[in-house]
């Protein structure tokens, strides 16, 4: 390696749509790793870190936030065209986020409650993931994302390899850590069996049920879990609320709270 020229740095841009900024903060949160990372990549556009911005095209765009306005729709298409790789970071960009709760209500009702002069607000009726509008190369899950996984994404692309991010559920993290199952041992409702790993089983390790902030794992059998929770005595309202948080708009969870609402109305 020493006798070959250094490879060109990966040109990275960070973009924000409808979101809380927490996921892009994860990049700044890489305190110990930040300097070595900065040597591996060129940060061309990251307003949270620097006003200095470089024009595109970009090797890797990290996109935070969901699509909620007509302007967002235009901007994400532009960014896609400027980006060799586009990776969504977080629940908002990957599934619509908590703000996607408006997808299951009348947006006019919310506007009237929240804003003094709702006529100034131009918004879509839905909050949608980036993938509803453009091709996405990788969706990094979490609310917020795990900084270790973010580093893995950046390093993988900087080294020209596929990112290695687990697709199994939180239970595997619990069991590897020797954590006692809160659902089996205490009857605590837990979304761990259907939620993608990445958090290190944070909540179960504090004897709490998982609330699914990394979203459904691929192939999640949320219906099977929902039925079991009902058997354990969880009422339709509790189950509906369990599935309608940060990943309320992810299909596996969306089906469950839609079903829960129907059950509540019929009971």
């Amino acid at each position: 390696m020493n006798d070959s020229p250094a490879p060109p740095k990966l040109k990275v841009a960070v973009w924000k749509f409808a979101s809380c900024d927490g996921c892009q903060l994860s990049l700044l949160d890489c305190e110990d790793e930040l300097l070595p990372v900065a040597e591996t990549i060129e940060i061309a556009h990251f307003l949270e870190a620097s006003r200095a911005v470089a024009p595109g095209p970009y090797d890797l765009s990290l996109v935070e936030g969901s699509i909620t306005t007509p302007q967002d729709v235009e901007r994400i298409r532009e960014l896609r065209a400027q980006s060799k790789l586009l990776v969504t970071i977080g629940a908002c960009a990957s599934a619509g986020g908590i703000q996607a709760l408006k997808n299951f209500a009348r947006v006019e009702d919310y506007l009237r409650v929240v804003y003094a002069t709702p006529e100034y607000v131009e918004t879509l009726a839905t909050s949608e993931p980036i993938s509803a509008h453009v091709r996405v190369d990788f969706e990094l899950q979490g609310c917020p994302i795990d900084k270790g996984q973010l580093l893995e994404i950046v390093l993988a692309y900087a080294n020209g390899r596929e990112p290695r991010v687990p697709r199994h559920c939180v239970c595997v993290e619990c069991k590897r850590a020797g954590q006692v199952c809160v659902m089996v041992a205490s009857g605590t409702p837990c979304l761990g069996p259907v939620t993608q790993a990445g958090c290190g089983a944070l909540c179960p390790r504090w004897s709490r049920g998982c609330y699914g902030c990394f979203g459904p794992m691929p192939g999640a059998n949320a219906e099977g879990l929902d039925e079991r929770l009902a058997m354990l005595g969880s009422d339709p309202r509790e189950r509906r609320r369990l599935f309608s948080t940060f990943y309320a708009n992810a299909p596996a969870f969306r089906d469950r709270h839609a079903q829960g609402r129907a059950d509540e109305e019929s009971s």
Binding site: H168, C169, C171, V172, K175, R176, C181, G192, P193, V194, G219, A220, N221, G224, L225, E227, R228
Partner: peptide, 13 residues
């Protein structure tokens, strides 16, 4: 398979 969550708990324990 309708009941199984494919969560791997059986294999871990």
């Amino acid at each position: 398979a309708e009941r199984c969550l494919s969560c791997a708990n059986c294999t871990m324990v």
